[in-house]
Amino acid sequence: MSRKGYTPDNAACEGFFGVLKNEFFYSRNWRKVNKEEFKAELEKYLEWFCSKRIKVGLNGMNPTDYRKLYLDKQSV
């Protein structure tokens, strides 16, 4: 993220954190969760978000499968 108020640079980060809050944080009750449990849950969510989440922009594939398909096409 860059300086305050420079929207083009901050848009990607703001979009990601908005999705993170809506999908991960706001949908759960965190009152009885300690810091270590929260960190473990966050790591599981980020792993799912980065590698297993289905994305419309990737033709309904998850990023891992899309990369494999792309690499297979490059090696042929």
Rank of each mutant, 00 (worst) to 15 (best):
A12T: 06
R67Y: 03
W30L: 13
R53Q: 13
S51E: 04
L69S: 09
E14W: 02
E43N: 04
K68H: 08
D65I: 12
E23R: 14
S2P: 12
P8Y: 07
K52T: 07
K21E: 09
L42T: 03
T7K: 07
N34C: 15
S51H: 06
M61F: 02
S27G: 06
G15W: 00
N29L: 13
K39A: 10
M1C: 11
D9A: 04
I54R: 12
S51A: 05
A40R: 04
R67I: 11
E41H: 03
F16R: 08
L71K: 12
K68V: 12
L58T: 05
G15Q: 01
K32Q: 14
L42P: 07
N22Y: 02
L71R: 11
E41S: 05
V56A: 12
P63C: 04
S27N: 07
N62R: 02
K32A: 15
V33E: 13
K73N: 11
A11V: 01
A11M: 02
L20R: 03
G5I: 00
M61P: 00
F49H: 12
C50T: 05
F24E: 03
P63Y: 07
F38G: 12
W48C: 07
Y45V: 06
L71G: 04
K39F: 10
L71M: 14
E47F: 11
Y70F: 15
Y26Q: 04
V76Q: 14
K4R: 07
M1I: 14
E23V: 12
L69G: 05
A40L: 07
E36P: 05
R53S: 09
V76A: 10
Y6T: 06
A11P: 01
V19G: 00
G15R: 12
T64R: 15
C13M: 14
F25G: 00
N10D: 02
S75I: 15
S75E: 13
G15V: 02
R3P: 02
K55A: 10
K39E: 14
G57M: 05
M61E: 08
P8S: 09
N10E: 01
L69M: 12
M1Q: 08
D72W: 05
E43L: 08
A40P: 00
A40S: 05
R31V: 15
N62P: 01
W48R: 08
A12G: 02
K21W: 06
K4D: 03
W48H: 13
G15P: 01
K21T: 07
E37W: 05
K21F: 05
M61R: 11
E41T: 01
K32P: 01
R3K: 11
D72P: 03
V33G: 11
K55H: 14
W30K: 09
N34R: 06
K32I: 09
Y70N: 11
A40T: 07
K32R: 14
G5N: 00
L69K: 13
C13P: 01
M61C: 06
P63W: 04
L42F: 10
K32N: 15
S2C: 13
K55R: 15
K52Y: 10
W48G: 04
F17K: 00
F24L: 10
E47C: 11
V56L: 08
S2Q: 15
K21M: 11
W30V: 11
S27V: 07
E36R: 14
A40H: 03
K44P: 05
E41V: 01
L58S: 10
R28S: 12
D9Q: 04
N29H: 13
Y66I: 08
N29T: 13
N34F: 06
L42E: 02
W30E: 08
Q74N: 04
K52R: 14
E43M: 07
